[in-house]
Write a protein that binds this DNA or RNA. Structure first.
Lengths: 142, 142
DNA sequence: ACCAAATGTGACTCTTAACATCACATATTG
DNA sequence: CAATATGTGATGTTAAGAGTCACATTTGGT
């Protein structure tokens, strides 16, 4: 029903790191060390955040990334959407048995249910700002 | 972040079919025709629903399944849980970079966020009964 | 102008987990 | 006890995410 994807968690990690790092300018190599993930993978994630307008990236020598807005004005929903994570809920793609009314209508009814579920999921993400999230990380100490 | 799984959709399909079928006793072969999925797969799904107490199954010759309770008293959350669908949201499993406070605390903070999201997702499923769902299917006609 | 060092991206491989399928155990009716 | 259900472990298949490589592109410094 869903796709195991790390995109959202990694994107959030990157955003939190950018928000916490003093000065705020961080290169992708440093970020990759923090996430301990593949550099190319991190660059790709950063690129998405950049395209979504959450991060400003400079290229060339001494290139780096900065948050495009203060953390208060970025929600986890923004990050989720930017991360390109696939929709959390999916339906099967079996053929339809035309003689069966359940089979005929299930997909339509099911996708109504799932899109409602997706909305309530997104709503809960919209209620958390990056600033909140960073505060929680700081609260746990080091 | 999630796992593409068809379990929930199939389980809902089965429950709706059992609820709609006149008399209510249906064999797994008939159900498999409606879903147009593999018979073994359907039996396994039914088995889970049975173990969860949503369905009563009789074995042996003339074996079949019936809803254990009236559709009004079954929610889609019951079905979701019974379906054994993996948690909709997951975190990566990269190692922790101990020098980085973000890396150290991310998993914990992230799983708090995700479990909250999961809860709000489940809440929206809890608000829909199987009877509601069947009504929606019927409303679409055949 | 050129080199060094960074990001951006397309292409390919590797890995994993869900689904499909098979084989057979188990249960029940007539 | 034979016929016909369901239950389930084992194994094969496959699709999608993640890892990796190669190289283009951008930009600052000498």
């Amino acid at each position: 029903m869903s796709v195991k994807s790390v995109q959202f968690a990694v994107a959030t990690h990157l955003m939190a790191a950018l928000g916490i790092y003093p000065g705020g300018e961080v290169g992708s190599a440093t970020l990759a060390e923090s996430v301990k993930a593949n550099r190319t993978f991190v660059r790709k994630s950063l690129s998405k955040l950049s395209k979504a307008g959450l991060v400003l990236t400079t290229r060339g020598k001494s290139g780096a990334s900065v948050l495009a807005r203060p953390p208060k004005r970025i929600t986890l929903l923004d990050i989720y959407r930017a991360s390109g994570a696939p929709p959390a809920f999916a339906i099967h793609s079996y053929p339809v048995e035309k003689r069966c009314p359940v089979s005929c209508n299930l997909k339509e009814c099911m996708s109504a249910v799932l899109s409602q579920a997706q909305k309530s999921f997104e709503k809960s993400l919209a209620n958390i700002t990056l600033a909140d999230f960073i505060r929680q990380i700081r609260a746990k100490g080091h």
